[in-house]
Design a protein around this nucleic acid. Sequence first.
DNA 1: TTAATTTGCACCTAC
DNA 2: TGCAAATTAA
Length: 746
Amino acid sequence: MTKDFLRDLNPAQLEAVKFIEGPELVLAGAGSGKTKVLTYRVAYLVSAGVSLHNILCLTFTNKAANEMRTRINKMLGIEETNKRTFNTWIGTFHSLFGKILRVESKNIGYGQNFSIYDEDDSLKKVREILKERNLAEEVYAPAAIRSRISKLKNAVILPSQFEQTAKSRLDEVTADIYTTYEDRLKKNNSMDFDDLLIKPILLFNRNRESLERYQDRFRFILVDEYQDTNRAQYVLLKLLSEKHRNLCVVGDDAQSIYSWRGAELQNILDFQSDYPDCKVFRLEQNYRSTGKILKAANSLIVHNKRKLDKELWTENLDGDNLTVIEAESDRDEGYKIVQKIRNESVKEKLQLKDFVVLFRTNYQSRALEEAFNRGGIPYLIIGGLAFYKRKEIKDLLAYLRLVVNQLDDESFMRVVNSPPRGVGDVTIDYLRNFATESNIALFNAADRVDEIPEIQPRQKGQLKLFSELIKKYVRLKDELSVSELTRSMTDELQFIRLLKDEGTPEARNRMENIQEFLAGIAEFQSDNPQGTLQDFLSEVTLVADVDRWDTQRNAVTLMTVHAAKGLEFPVVFVSGLEEGLFPLPAKEQNELEEERRLFYVAITRAKRKVYLSHARERYRFGKLSYQTQSRFLSEIESDLLELERSSRQAPQHTLWEDTNIVTSLTPSLDYLDSPLAKESDRQTEIKERRSIPKLRIGSIVRHEFFGEGKVIEVSGKGDNERVIVLFGANQKKQLMLRYANLTLVR
DNA sequence: TTAATTTGCACCTAC
DNA sequence: TGCAAATTAA
C-alpha cells in the first residue's frame, strides 16, 4: 500500500494522522483541514494494516459521513460499485447506534422492529400523559416537559434517579411523566432519538459480553465535531474505547453551538484530564478564508471568556473587507441581498451555488424567499419545513410504520382518521380505554372492536376496515418490495386522488411532495436492493435537512447557521444581525457566548467574501418591530468593516398573489447557459417601472435568466396578469408579468 | 359524533 | 404571519 497521500499534509496534520495508539485530541480551528485529517487518518490506519472493519468513525451529519466514505474509498482505491458494499462504520451517532440496537434489541427487551419517534411523536406522547393526569397544559407546558425529559436522557439520568433528586413540584411532575413516558414507549415498541444513545449505554452496562464484542470490533474510534457531543455520547465513547484506548477526537471549542440539545463544551475542555496520557495536536493554519475574514473572526471570538487558547492564522491573501449592509426592512434586506448576488455573480464570475445566505432562525427565510422569487434568482432552502415533517409525508410514513410495528400507538393515532373515516375523538377515547384496560395496543383494540359496546356500528365497521387494510399490508410486506408496497398503499388510500379533488395550490404542492417521496423510495430501493421497509424508515427518520441537499444544483443556498456547520462557500451573507435576533435574547453569559460562537461559525464559512446585513424594522409575530443593530457588529475590529448604505430601497409592490412563481423546485441548470443580467441596480429599478408588454399565446419573450421562450398560456388581469412560458424544450415557468421583466421579442 | 370554523398563541437552533 | 386547539354547526 502506497502512502503517497501523506505528502498532501502539513507538518501538524501529518503528526495528527500518524499518531495511532492511544487517546488523541486534535484541536482544529475552522478551515484547518479537520475533515482531511480524519479521512487521511483512516486511510493511514488501513495502509498500516488495520482492517476497515475495525474502525468506527462518527460524524455529525449523514452528508459528512457519505463524503468521508467516498473520499476514503477513493484514496484506498476501493471501487464504489455499490454504495453499500463497503459499508464501513462511518455515520452519525444516531444512525450507527440505531443499527446496533436493531441487532441487540432482544437484550434490552425490545422487538427488532421498533419504531423511531421524532420530536413531534414524543411531544404528543407527553401531551397524552399530561391529559391523563389532568394536569393543565398552561401550568405544565408539554414542550417544556418534553425538552426536560430529553435533556435528562442526554445527561444519562434515568427516571428513578431523577425522582430521588426532585426538588420542586415541576421536578416531581417531570419525574412522573418521564417514568410513564418511558413505560409507554416501551409498550409501543418505540424509541425516541435520545434512546438511540442512552439505550446502548444501558445495554453495555448490563451486558459485558456484548460490550466487549463491540470494543473488539471497534478497535479504532474517530469522532468529528467532538465539541458538540453530549454526556450520553461521551459515556458511549468512554465505554467503547476503554479496552483498546484508541480514541481520536477532533473538534474546535470555538464552534460549539449545540448546548441547547445537551452538548457539553466541557467534554472537549476536559478531554485532557479524562485521558491524561492523551496526545494533543493543534491545527491552527487556516486554508479556507482570506486574511481579513479570519482576522474579523478572531477579533469577534476574543470576547468569549470560556475557551481554549488558539489563534488561527493563514497564508492566504488579505482579501476584501467585510461589507455591512444596512436595510430599512426585512423586505429591503432580501432585496439588497438579491441585488448584490446578481451583481457579484457577474462581476466576480461566480455561479449561484457559490453564494449562501445564512440566518439565525428559520422564519427569516420567508422574507428572503420572497425576494429571490421576485428577483427570479433560483434558490434552495435547507431546513424550514423539513421534507419528512410535512403532514402528507408524515401520514404516509405513519402508515408504513404501523405496517412494520403494530404496537406503535402514535402512528395509529395519526392515520386512523386520515384520510377521514368518520372515526373521531369520542370513538378514539372508547378505543383507548379498552386498550388500556386490556393492556394491548390501539391497533389490537381496533381488531377487537366488537368487544367495545360503546362504539357505534358505523365506527365499528370503519375500524374493522382500517384494521384489515393494515393487516393486508403486513402480509404483503415480505412479498412486495418497499417501493411496490408503498405505491400500492398510496393508491389504495387514494392519497393522490383526494388531493387532486381539492384542486387548491397547496393540495397540488402536497401531491408533488408525495410523488417526490415515492421517487425517493425508488431511489432507496435501487441503492439498497436488500433494504427492508424498516431500513427505509430508520434511514428516513434520521436524515437531516442538509443530508438531502443537492449540491449540484446551481442555486443560491438559504439555510440556518446551524445547518451550515462544516460547510464552506466563496461568498457568505449573514442576515438579520440585530439585537434580539442574532444574538437571540440570552438569559445568561453562557448563552450569549454560544450566540457569539454561532456568529463565528457563520463568518468562518466564507472563503472570499462576507456580507453582514441588518434591517431597521422587521415583521415578528406578524407585527412590525423596530430593530437595532447587533452588538456583534461592533465587536468586530472596525477597520475590517466597510459600510454600504444605499438610499434605494426595495420597490414597493403589493404582496405576491401566487408564491409559486419560480419555486425552489425549479430546475435551474439552464441559468448557466443563459446570458446574465448585465444591468446595474439602477437600471433594474427603471426596468421594473417600465411598462409591461402586451403578450399573447405564441409571443416570443426574453427573460433575463431563462433566455428566450414562447408564451403558451396567459391568465389574470392587471397586476395579477401571469403567463406560462416554455423556455427551451421542456422548461415551463409560470411568471407574473409584473415582476418577471420580460421583453417582447416578437 | 364528526366536520368546519374561529380564536388563541408562538418564533430558536436539530439528530 | 400561520398553525393547532377550542368552539360551533351539521
